[in-house]
């Protein structure tokens, strides 16, 4: 499993950000997630050096952060974060 996910730390942080966004989209009813918290989670991802080891990951994360501050719908932010996760996996499999 570890071989399939070389940038595990970054992947986990991106997943955390995705889960926060999905909570907003799903209206999970057990938390009150603010855009600031989502932005913080994305910034946590950007702090990791791993995101520079695969092409486009930093770019997608930056776009997701912009989308949050622009007040874009949760699904749009989620889609951009999924793109970052996908780029991270692709970069790791090379």
């Amino acid at each position: 499993m570890a071989g399939r996910e070389p940038h595990r730390g970054a992947a986990e942080r991106i997943r955390k950000a995705i889960a926060l966004v999905n909570s907003v989209a799903d209206d999970a009813g057990d938390e009150d997630i603010t855009p600031t918290e989502i932005a913080e989670a994305i910034r946590d991802c950007l702090e990791l050096g791993e995101v520079d080891e695969a092409p486009n990951v930093r770019r997608y994360l930056g776009e997701a952060l912009d989308a949050v501050s622009d007040g874009m719908p949760a699904d749009f932010v989620a889609m951009t974060l999924y793109a970052a996760l996908g780029a991270l996996r692709e970069g790791g499999s090379r």
Binding site: I18, N22, A25, P73, D75, F76, A78, M79, Y82, G86
Partner: peptide, 13 residues
């Protein structure tokens, strides 16, 4: 599946 749903909602938004 979740990613597919997010893309779908963006496309149909």
């Amino acid at each position: 599946l979740r990613a597919l749903q997010a893309v779908t909602n963006v496309m149909v938004g």
